[in-house]
Nucleic acid binder design. Structure first.
Lengths: 277, 277
DNA sequence: GGCGGCGATACCGCTCCGGTATCGAGCCAG
DNA sequence: CTGGCTCGATACCGGAGCGGTATCGCCGCC
């Protein structure tokens, strides 16, 4: 399975073999065996190129999910063992720079509960959270709909907020009481940023590539970008960035999310604290 | 992994080995290797009994999920290959005897759409649906909240309805216009039925063990049981079963559910047809 | 038309898995 | 208390399968 995913991602047996730390011939053979076992052609190969068949791309998606599931089984088991021997602790993951005041309130509220355990906070770029939560590296996440998909997780809504446009201080539009999406989608000289895709690559376009909100706000302050963001970013703003509400931007809901069927007492306590905020 | 799940379920190396079709010593060794690899004690064994540790029960849960995920990858890949070679088709699973008129409306509506594919209907007992959908034997399910868990699936709500109590025709209470839960929970001589648990065993209790709604209605007609059921069961009722609304019973929501990230055109069409009903 | 890149094939050695035989620790019967 | 059982662990052996090297065959390309 790992072998197939590697080949499907690289679309090149040699590179895939290198990535897997094995030689190319066993890899060819393994893929052929997998195809024989399934009775399905997964890859169309000529001696010049390798492409995925329809079935192959299904197996790529499903296979990744399956590999994540076994990784998760691994990690969660190890963590359960640690927890039993007196080192409990939860790992919470959230986007760097988002919902920070909500997060600190949550951590305070939970810490005040009887029986609270240590909570490690893991900050990451957008789109990485889902995978961290799915493969067991994190126990719980703060996600932001509609940007993050909550598919496959249990969730509780924590807060809903509007969005504002963040602009360099002194920009002409900062005088306005409110704006509309149409006003801010194509500001001359202030392109919208490009966020990484799940695989770490960036789409093409004019805007600067950013990895988290801190970077983004810095670029806005420098007059190189603008962005539409949830209201709560104001917590990070210095004097060099101004915000104006955008009336017709979609509202953003912050949710606390965790893997289904988690039955840890510590996690339940954290979720309870979150819903009481 | 399969080995561990077998041992954890049987709590007996000999029986587990038999179930797996291997001898007992390799099984012992495999489990010990797994424990060494994870650095975790999964089972406490004396020569008289085997019990799960905390970590072991986590791995049992997670491991089952992981095995389901690889089964699903397998099956979905095979189905994708079939679909590509001209045999499309969806498998829809629902509880035998539930929501049948909704289901037939759905199938009709979908069949009328351009590009509709064949839909195989799979009927099963309650609590099996989740697994069938999770491990790829089915593409889509009709679930009934709050009885079924929709955790880990994408869903759309189709219908919400109240519940009625089903009684043998002629029972004194059938004259009443409506009832309350308190009136129907302990009817003398008409115990509530016992449904199977996910593992196929039945809880203890006075009521008859039933596998689906057809059996149940038959037992009610025979004066051996009563049950609180969604209103829509009336579609199956003969003259020998009467129903009375139960005002304070929880409402039942029928939802259409499918595995997250499914991107099949046929599935999307079916869901669209469902939401338009 | 020769060269180079790339996947497939052929063949070999070693590791790991599964099988049989046996041991050793508890529980039980008498 | 002792012999027999039940059941998991250990010891050892044989074979299948995986990974490695060497090589082939196909196809673009200069």
């Amino acid at each position: 399975m790992r072998y197939f995913v590697a080949v499907a991602e690289e679309l090149h047996f040699g590179r895939a073999a290198q990535r897997l730390g094995i030689a190319q011939p066993p890899l060819s053979r393994a893929i052929r065996q997998l195809e024989r076992r399934l009775g399905v052609t997964l890859l169309e190969r000529t001696s010049r190129s390798v492409t995925l068949t329809e079935a192959g791309s299904v197996l790529l998606r499903e296979g990744r999910a399956a590999l994540d599931a076994v990784d998760a089984a691994d990690r969660r088991t190890r963590r359960a063992a640690l927890a039993a021997t007196g080192h409990p602790g939860l790992v919470l993951v959230t986007k760097a720079g988002a919902s920070s005041e909500l997060l600190s309130k949550l951590l305070d509220a939970y810490a005040a509960e009887p029986g609270a355990v240590a909570v490690d906070v893991l900050l990451c770029g957008p789109a990485e959270q889902e995978r961290l939560l799915r493969d067991g590296r994190a126990d719980v996440a703060l996600l932001h709909r509609p940007f993050d998909s909550t598919v496959g997780f249990d969730t509780e809504e924590l807060r809903t907020e509007g969005q504002v446009v963040a602009l360099p201080a002194g920009h002409p539009l900062t005088g306005r009481a409110h704006l509309r999406m149409a006003d801010v989608t194509a500001l001359p000289g202030l392109p919208l940023p490009r966020w990484p895709r799940p695989d770490g690559t960036y789409p093409d376009g004019p805007g600067p590539a950013v990895r988290d909100h801190v970077q983004l706000l810095q670029l806005i302050a420098l007059g190189r970008a603008s962005a539409v963001l949830p209201e709560s970013v104001w917590a990070h703003l210095g004097r060099d960035v101004a915000t104006v509400p955008v009336l017709d931007a979609p509202t953003v809901t912050t949710v606390i999310a965790w893997p289904p069927h988690s039955r840890s007492r510590a996690l339940a306590g954290l979720v309870r604290a979150a819903t009481r905020l």
